[in-house]
Design a protein around this nucleic acid. Sequence first.
DNA 1: GGTCGATTCAAACGAGTGTTTCATCGATTC
DNA 2: GAATCGATGAAACACTCGTTTGAATCGACC
Lengths: 213, 213
Amino acid sequence: MENQDTTKARLIEAAGREFAEKGYDQARIRSICDRAGANLAAVNYHFGDKERLYREVLLEAYRGGGPEVTPTLGDVPPAEKLRGFIRFFFHHIVALKEEHAWQTRMMAREISDPSAALDEVVQGWIRPRFEMLKSIMREIRPEADDRRLNALCFSVVGQCLMYRLTGAVTKRLIGPESKGLLDDDYLADHVATFTLAALGLGPPAGRDEATNS
Amino acid sequence: MENQDTTKARLIEAAGREFAEKGYDQARIRSICDRAGANLAAVNYHFGDKERLYREVLLEAYRGGGPEVTPTLGDVPPAEKLRGFIRFFFHHIVALKEEHAWQTRMMAREISDPSAALDEVVQGWIRPRFEMLKSIMREIRPEADDRRLNALCFSVVGQCLMYRLTGAVTKRLIGPESKGLLDDDYLADHVATFTLAALGLGPPAGRDEATNS
DNA sequence: GGTCGATTCAAACGAGTGTTTCATCGATTC
DNA sequence: GAATCGATGAAACACTCGTTTGAATCGACC
C-alpha cells in the first residue's frame, strides 16, 4: 500500500544503486536525491541521516525485493553439489556486472568494504550461504574437524572472491587480453576442478589442455 | 647526504605510516604533519600536493629502504618451492601486523584498495613476485598454456589473499575464537597442502586430522 | 473555503580538509 | 653586519558535503 512510486521508495532505489556503485563513503546524498528526482532535504526528512538511510537500504537489499541469490542443489553427489555451488558463486557474486541488481552488488561490496552494518549482513546474508558450502564440505569430509572445514571452505571462497576483490590488479598484472580470456565459465570450471582435485575427488588440475587453444 | 632527519625525510616516513594505516583517501595531511612534527604547509612546500606526496612515498616504499620482501627458494623440487612461496606469501603479505614495515603494508593496501599509482606498483613490485610464482607453476605444469597457468597461480594467490581482504567478514562469520585458531602457520600449511593435492603432488587435503584437536 | 498536518523546496549553515598566503626565521654569502 | 634565499609557521581561504531551517505547497477533512 506504500511501495508505489513514493519519494521514499524512489530514494531507497536510488540510494541502493548509488551505494552499490560507490560504497557508503563515496556515495553522495546530493547524487542520490538527483537520481530519485527528490529534493536534497528529502533524505533527512524521510530517514533522518545518511547512516539510517544506508541501514534501511541494506535491509531492503537482503530481506526485501532483491532477486533470489541462493543456489539450489538437488540430490546429487557432494562433488556435484560443490561444483554447482562454485558455478553459482561465480555467476551471482563474483561476476557482478553493472546490470546486476544493486541488492546483490551491495552485499558483495560489504565483503570487500564493510560498513558499520556488517554484522547484520554477515548474519542475515553471508552466513546462510557459507553454511550451505560448509555442509557440502562436511558431506565430503565427515571426519574433518571444524577448523579444517573452515579452512577448506575458505580455500574455495578465496579462489572465487580473488577475481572480485583484485580485479584492478589482475587486469594490469596479466594484461586486459589475458584477463578477458578468463571468463566466468572458464574460471568456475577451473576452480571446481582445482578444488575437487585437492579433495581427491577428481583428476589433478591443469593437465587437460586439449580442449582450448 | 640528505637522508638525515630532515623535514622532508620525516614527512615521507610519517606519510608512509599514515597511508599504510588509513589509505590515500582517509589519510590526513594534518595528521601526517603532526606525526612528522612539521608545519601544515610543509607537505605543499616539499611535495606540491597530497598526490605527489603519495607517489614519492610509494616510490620510497618499493624502491627504497623497505625490507627485502622476496622469497629465496633454493634448488629444491618444484613442490617444495611452491610450499616455500606460499609460506613466504602468508608471513610477509597476508599476515601483516601493525608492527610490520609500512612499506610492505602500503603494497598490500594497493592490492585491495588501489590508488591512481597502481600501475607503477603492479609493474615494479607485484609482477616480479607473480612471475616467480608463475615460473614455479611452469615447472610443475610445463604443458599448461598461459591461460591455465594464470588461473593456477590465481588459485594459489586467492586462497592466501582471502584472509587479508576479508578479515572483518571471516571474523564475524566463524567467530573470533575460530578465527584465532586459523593462525598463519596453520593456514600456510593448509593452503600448501590443498594446492599440492590439487596439482597431484600430494595427498588429498583435509584427511590428516590426527595432529590437532 | 479555511485549517492543519505532511511533504517538498531553495537556501544556507557548519564542520572537515586540501591548499595558499605572507610574514618570519636562520644560515650562508659578500 | 647587511642582503639573500631556502625553510618554517600561523592563519586564512576555497571547496565539498552532510545537515538544518523556515517558507511554500499539497491534500484531506470539517
